[in-house]
């Protein structure tokens, strides 16, 4: 019974220091003030605006008074639900494609290139390099490349892969392409961080325990890199759902590709219908929160954290 003597020595309770110090509160103050001023206050203002009613004493556009016009939600959602569907459809598609493209890149940098730190560093720079150029400029550059006069379209047309009156820009394809392109670094970096810490001896243990290389990937490597996958997909999905640049007609989108972000922008900036824009923003936030909380729970990554 030698083992029994050592059976219950595993529970280690870390003693939490309970000392409360004024310094801690002082150090928290700037962050709390920032959150209050730039997050909580605008959020309250946004929700209040979403219930505003048109000013009965003014005929001008953009004049509203505080009210509790909850019908705003009914009308705005019924008029705009298709933009929500498109937004989340595009965002999910872009997230999935970005994940499929990014995982091998992250694996190459974090696992395969481990014996060669110079190659790792170079590949990481390649991933980050696009950030040195403005997001808008890069998206505009793609508009040029994929435009009707660009070499991509002319080549495809001459090869009869695209009909003579076909376009790339202004289509759902180009919007999803733009979203995917712009968010790939946000997907690669967290997955790389997870894989970079992967203990290769665990992969050897997998091979030793009758798991083929592909089984070892699905049962060991992928589960251990889930924190990176979850972080990367959130960093891609959340901003992509609310994106209004890629889908805008000035960039890669067209009249048929408008996302919620574009509707919010035009309601705020063109039609000056602030309550409608606010309703769209609040609903977008709420749906993202629901999707993300379900996703994080389903991914079960809390076990790894």
């Amino acid at each position: 019974m030698a083992f029994a003597a050592f059976a219950d020595t595993s529970e280690k309770k870390s003693a939490e220091p309970v000392k409360k110090s004024r310094v801690v509160i002082l150090m928290l103050l700037p962050g709390l003030a920032y959150l209050l001023l730039f997050f909580l206050a605008p959020l309250v203002s946004l929700i209040l605006t979403s219930f505003m009613a048109p000013d009965p004493n003014s005929m001008d556009m953009g004049q509203f008074v505080y009210s509790f016009q909850w019908q705003n939600y009914v009308t705005v959602i019924s008029e705009n639900w298709s933009f929500f569907v498109r937004s989340f459809g595009f965002a999910i598609l872009a997230t999935v494609i970005a994940l499929i493209v990014s995982y091998p890149i992250a694996y190459f940098i974090g696992v395969y290139a481990r014996p060669w730190p110079a190659i790792q560093a170079f590949a990481l720079i390649l991933v980050i390099a696009p950030f040195f150029i403005s997001f808008l400029l890069r998206t505009l550059a793609w508009k040029q490349l994929l435009g009707d006069d660009g070499w991509v379209v002319t080549t495809l047309k001459s090869a009869s892969l695209l009909p003579a009156d076909g376009h790339i820009t202004g289509t759902a394809f180009s919007v999803v392409f733009g979203l995917t392109y712009n968010f790939i670094p946000f997907m690669v970096l967290p997955i790389y961080t997870s894989l970079e810490r992967l203990d290769m001896r665990l992969l050897e243990a997998g091979r030793d325990l009758y798991a083929s290389p592909s089984t070892t990937f699905w049962k060991v490597t992928l589960p251990l890199s889930m924190p990176g996958v979850v972080a990367g997909t959130l960093l891609t999905f959340i901003p992509a759902s609310g994106d209004f640049v890629n889908a805008s007609s000035s960039f890669l989108g067209g009249p048929g590709t408008q996302m919620v972000g574009n509707q919010i922008a035009s309601n705020f900036l063109k039609i000056l219908d602030y309550p409608a824009a606010s309703v769209l923003s609040v609903v977008l936030m709420a749906v993202i929160m629901v999707i993300v909380s379900v996703y994080v729970r389903r991914a079960g990554t809390e076990e790894l954290l």
């Binding site: 203990d199 050897e204 030793d208 060991v220 251990l224 790894l304």
Partner: peptide
């Protein structure tokens, strides 16, 4: 099968 020096237990 191998008992590894580092044990290499699957943490997940």
């Amino acid at each position: 099968n191998t008992v590894f020096q580092s044990y290499a237990l699957f943490p997940h």
